[in-house]
């Protein structure tokens, strides 16, 4: 009995670490590429642990020798790779944060209404919201390009923020609705009888209860915007570009700058990582525990 439980615990630990390694190794390998000299990247067998680390790739990508990222553009690689990525990282941060904020604001209000208020066609409304995600984005990219061109949103932060928020809304509404649905209606009703208005109930009572849900939804929205490629590619020109789109410029007609690409990718993980770390403490479940006895 004892032996079996011991061995099964060992198997579980081994499997656990294997899974972790499976996910973490590519990430680690990508990081090593970012810190390797050009030739070393292509060594065979690849040097996973022992290599001479260098920050040359980061210097190149962010133009550090010219002051962090905001110096003059320097063309090093043949083929026209862009080597001033600091501002591009900034673009990504602004767009991801603002589009997430916009999507969360709208989704929270909308999903509370969908969860609590009775109106004609409520159920159709939910499936209608979802249906906007059923079309492949590429099908709308071109029409949106022309619309943006006409109304002057092309190549602007507002334009990209709007489209990212729009893409995130259906999922955010659906997710947030399920979080609101989890809160028993009696809590609203109790506050209603206590004399509170709908808005007050939403703001003071229900919203603090879905903090965890908002955090989880925000993480998903943020990551979507952070990694979105198609719309940024089609709707921006020179004014702004996000990291995924500029990383593709490392693939040039004369070769791929793997080191630079890895350096940018590694750097791009940091803001996303910080964002997730910040909201993580709100992700704790069990905030609603104890309000109602089931």
């Amino acid at each position: 009995m004892m032996v079996r439980s011991k061995s099964s615990r060992m198997v579980r630990t081994i499997v656990g670490w294997a899974v972790v390694a499976l996910f973490a190794f590519p990430l680690y390998y990508w990081m090593t590429v970012a810190f390797k000299e050009g030739n070393e990247i292509f060594n065979w067998p690849p040097k996973v642990w022992s290599f001479t680390p260098t920050i040359k790739n980061f210097e190149e990508v962010f133009g550090i020798s010219f002051g962090f990222g905001f110096g003059e553009q320097r063309e090093v690689l043949p083929g026209g790779g862009n080597f001033r990525m600091g501002p591009r990282l900034w673009d990504s941060i602004v767009i991801a944060i603002l589009s997430t904020a916009l999507a969360i604001t709208i989704a929270t209000l909308a999903s509370y209404a969908l969860s609590r208020m009775n109106f004609r066609g409520r159920h159709h409304f939910v499936s209608w919201v979802l249906s906007t995600r059923m079309m492949p984005p590429v099908a709308v990219a071109i029409p949106i390009f022309f619309i943006y061109k006409d109304i002057g949103l092309l190549d602007t932060y507002t334009g990209v923020i709007l489209i990212h928020a729009l893409m995130n809304l259906p999922l955010a509404v659906l997710l947030m609705k399920s979080f609101f649905d989890d809160i028993p209606g009696e809590i609203d009703e109790s506050a209603l009888v206590d004399g509170a208005s709908r808005w007050l109930i939403f703001r003071r009572i229900v919203l603090p209860m879905v903090k965890g849900g908002i955090a989880a939804t925000a993480v998903l929205c943020f990551i979507f915007s952070w990694t979105e490629f198609l719309f940024v590619l089609t709707l921006t020109q020179t004014g702004l570009k996000t990291v995924p789109v500029v990383s593709s410029t490392f693939v040039t007609s004369t070769g791929t700058a793997w080191g630079s690409m890895a350096a940018l990718g590694a750097a791009a993980m940091i803001p996303a990582f910080i964002f997730i770390l910040l909201v993580q403490k709100h992700l704790v479940r069990g905030l609603t525990l104890g309000s109602v006895k089931q």
Binding site: P184, L192, P208
Partner: peptide
Amino acid sequence: HPRDRDVAMVFQNYALYPTM
């Protein structure tokens, strides 16, 4: 409206506000 009826209600599952 419920808030204008001047009634107080105790619910079966108490419906306390968990964040307060």
